[in-house]
Design a binder for these strands. Structure first.
Length: 566
RNA sequence: CGGGGCGUGGCUCAGCCUGGUAGAGCGCCUGGUUCGGGACCAGGAGGCCGGUGGUUCGAAUCCACUCGCCCCGACCA
């Protein structure tokens, strides 16, 4: 296409509302414009890039036998009520009423619609397995949209759903998706990490997330490069650093001591001259309305996600001060497990086997020393702790890294949650009715673009992989008024097109500097600069990522580009 | 929902404290000169200063309310 005819509104300066690199560059490079909080218009360049991403996704989904569909975004309340998610989704779901006052909503994801199709049509085991997918707009009324296209209220998702007769079938479908996702992200040129993930409100047993390392991300992942361990922080396990001081020996009895004004772990540590690792941190939590006392080593953080899993609660929150006073008889800062019988007590595994520790006495301004878990109080031991910097991999002892990342894909073994609640049944080979098992799998289309930008950019703009860049090469005559340059550029442009190279001709009547700055900004991976050397039959090949320049004979330029984009 | 910040031509921002006829740079339009990393000269267009109400002779400026956007937290299949 010819730049002079295109709408590519680049900006010299980033609009002040943008903070993360991908947001700034998408705006500056004229890819997107914001309409409202978390709602964006995708202009020509963004749409072109997203189309390329979607085509890669389609090819790879089709390759595993997935069938593309297109489901409605506008849903009746009924199916969401059946699955129970009309309630669960709360304010995150956009809801509306039709003219007859019937409740409707905008789809946040499509388990319900897919399952309703399946239950209406699938009758026999002979029809399974099925892999169905779509690429469609999702709506989520995010409490806080942010970071440009990273967290928005309307976005594109490739979502697929599998239906299998049994867990073994689901394993196969899951593995196919895992591999297809790797191929998709590889082809999109991304660097990513696959991590074990928490299944969250989706329900289900196993799940993996595909993550791109970025400070703009909202997740933390735990990675051990040598051991290959990778998990979301919500789920990650590790070997903690050993206690800073060995526990006192002997069968000592708990002993109360006065700790006036010492409430935090640090204050008690300073007061007793004993490290935080010698203390028991006691957190009063409320899991689905019921109090739970969670115990951790003093230097450890509670993972609320793990606590919720352990208690089977949908959500866990810290207790309010009044609740603590009521249940424990003291305020936060003086709480402990000794003598607590009315509520469930769960302790982190790092406390198992410890002896003679310090904890609150459930009496304001008093603590206990010589408290031994399992003897002086009873607790269930579970993994409740959040992995901390310095922790090592559980099996190999390798130092683990914690990396800020953004999620670009997520695969789930759903199990029977939707097929059961919505009544999907088929007959098996014995004529008996059985409930198929499901999986669901998502890719955030825009996040692939954002991830690529976050990963590959410099002060001058984006450096997009050629597979997802809006154009693969830009042909730039340095002076459009020079007839020889213009004609040679035109010819080279046509030659590129003829060879199937997605070329852009910068035929604007602009000074070269403007053209260079613009093409750098919008991230076209290659540029053929047609200038003075045309007299010697040469054109300059400029590689955006790294900015290397080489001279190439004009006659070979198109073929060279073709070869470089693979 | 709690905390913070910001709303002034398309973009970045000044002006506000101390009320008195709305500014700069970039961008845009016209003409000319230029042409290898965001050119130069000359001329020009473009703003109910987010909105409403109040105070005042007079409000971008002071006060109240309100809307919007951004950031932190809570939340997040």
């Amino acid at each position: 296409m010819r730049w002079s005819k295109l709408f590519i509104p680049t900006l010299r300066e980033a609009p002040s509302e943008a903070e993360v690199p991908s947001h700034q560059l998408l705006l500056r490079a004229g890819y997107v414009r914001q309409l409202s909080a978390g709602i964006y218009s995708y202009l020509f360049l963004a749409q072109r890039s997203l189309n390329k991403i979607m085509n890669i996704v389609r090819r790879e989904m089709d390759a595993i036998g997935a069938q593309e569909m297109y489901l409605p975004a506008l849903n009746p309340a009924e199916i969401w009520q059946e699955s129970g998610r009309w309630q669960v989704m709360g304010d995150n779901m956009f809801r509306l009423k039709d003219r007859f006052q019937r409740d409707m909503c905008l789809g946040m994801t499509h388990e319900e619609v897919m399952t309703s199709i399946a239950r209406g049509e699938l009758r026999s085991y002979k029809q399974l397995p099925q892999i169905w997918y779509q690429i469609q707009t999702k709506f989520r009324d995010e409490p806080r949209p942010k970071s440009g296209l990273l967290r928005v209220r309307q976005f594109l998702m490739k979502d697929s759903y599998t239906f299998d007769m049994d867990a073994a079938g689901l394993d196969v479908a899951y593995q196919k998706h895992y591999e297809a996702y790797c191929r998709i992200f590889d082809r999109c040129g991304l660097k990513y990490t696959v991590v074990e993930a928490h299944s969250g409100a989706m329900g289900g047993s196993q799940s993996h997330e595909f993550m791109v390392a970025s400070d703009a991300g909202e997740d933390l992942i735990v990675v051990g490069e040598k051991s290959g361990y990778a998990a979301n922080l919500e789920k990650a396990v590790s070997r903690p650093v050993p206690p800073a001081l060995p526990d006192p020996e002997g069968d000592l009895a708990p002993e109360e001591f006065h700790t006036p004004g010492r409430k935090t772990i640090e204050e008690v540590a300073a007061f007793t001259s004993l490290p935080a690792t010698s203390q028991i941190k006691s957190l009063v939590m409320v899991a689905d309305g019921k109090p739970v006392l969670a115990l951790l080593r003093g230097d450890h953080q509670l993972s609320e996600t793990k606590l919720a899993s352990v208690t089977g609660a949908a959500e866990a929150r810290p207790a309010h001060p009044a609740e603590m006073r009521d249940w424990m008889g003291a305020d936060a800062g003086s709480l402990g497990p000794v003598g607590i019988t009315k509520m469930r007590v769960v302790a982190d595994l790092a406390l198992e086997g410890r002896r003679n520790m310090i904890c609150g006495a459930n009496k304001d301004d008093y603590h206990l020393r010589h408290v031994t878990p399992g003897e002086d109080f009873q607790a269930e031991f579970h993994d409740l702790r959040q992995v901390a910097p310095g922790d090592t991999e559980a099996n190999t002892g390798e130092a683990l890294k914690i990396v800020k990342s953004m999620e670009i894909g997520h695969i789930f073994k759903l199990g029977y949650k939707y097929s059961q609640s919505m009544g999907l049944r088929v007959t098996d080979e014995h004529g008996k009715e059985v409930t198929p098992i499901m999986g669901s799998y998502g890719i955030g289309i825009e996040r692939i673009l954002c991830g690529a930008i976050e990963l590959f950019h410099d002060a001058d703009g984006m450096m997009l992989p050629s597979s997802i860049a809006p154009f693969q090469v830009v042909i730039t005559p340095v002076n459009s008024k020079d007839a020889a340059l213009r004609e040679a550029s035109e010819a080279l442009y046509k030659e590129c097109l003829a060879m199937g190279v997605d070329a852009l001709l910068d035929d604007r009547d602009e000074r070269p500097g403007v053209k260079f700055k613009d093409s750098d900004l919008i991230g076209i991976p290659f540029r053929l600069t047609m200038g003075k050397k045309l007299g010697q039959g040469l054109v300059e090949l400029y590689v955006r990522n790294g900015k290397q320049v080489t001279d190439v004979p004009v006659a070979e330029a198109a073929a060279k580009i073709k070869q470089m984009i693979g």
